[in-house]
């Protein structure tokens, strides 16, 4: 079995995997980082979104071996020194989650979205969420949470 090495949430990690092992399974099974979820098998639901080299990708649509040498951030890596990331805090404040299953992917997508797009309005947020499905919230409070986090982070930068 090939071995793979990468940096996950700032920590150097390595492991033996089959070539067919998806990045999400490496994270969940080898590293026991079970915050990243698998909700579909057609690359549509986005429960598996993580950041690879600073960009949101679907970890169910990437082989673990493709991430050799990469910097990977999962939802577990967002909290710094016990302090919630503003997006995490906004999801709680605005009730942007119910069952919580889609939440890690939603949050990772939101962090990426806010990084890329300085002025997020409701329409843009809804469009940017095309690759993330939620069955509980009807999206309304997810959109609200992202909008609020975006404003807060912009304020913090200014």
């Amino acid at each position: 079995m090939p071995s793979v090495a990468m940096t996950v949430n700032g920590k150097a990690v390595s492991g033996e995997v089959e070539t067919r092992t998806l990045l999400v399974h490496f994270l969940r099974e080898n590293l026991r980082l079970t915050g990243t979820h698998v909700g579909c098998d057609t690359s549509q639901c986005g429960a598996c979104v993580v950041h690879v080299n600073g960009k949101a990708v679907k970890s169910c649509t990437m082989l673990a071996v493709q991430a050799e040498g990469a910097q990977v951030t999962t939802v577990e890596g967002l909290t710094q020194d016990g302090k919630l990331h503003p997006v995490q805090a906004a999801f709680k404040e605005h009730h942007g989650l119910q069952c919580g299953f889609c939440t890690p992917g939603m949050i990772m997508t939101a962090v990426d979205m806010i990084r890329r797009i300085p002025d997020l309005d409701e329409k843009t947020i809804r469009a940017e969420l095309e690759g993330n499905l939620c069955r509980c919230t009807g999206y309304q409070n997810i959109v609200k949470a992202i909008e609020a986090a975006s404003k807060e982070m912009k304020g913090a930068r200014a």
């Binding site: 915050g35 805090a89 989650l97």
Partner: peptide
Amino acid sequence: DHRFITGQGRYTD
């Protein structure tokens, strides 16, 4: 919420 937003939920899988 805390456990869900930090990836510490504990689902069956």
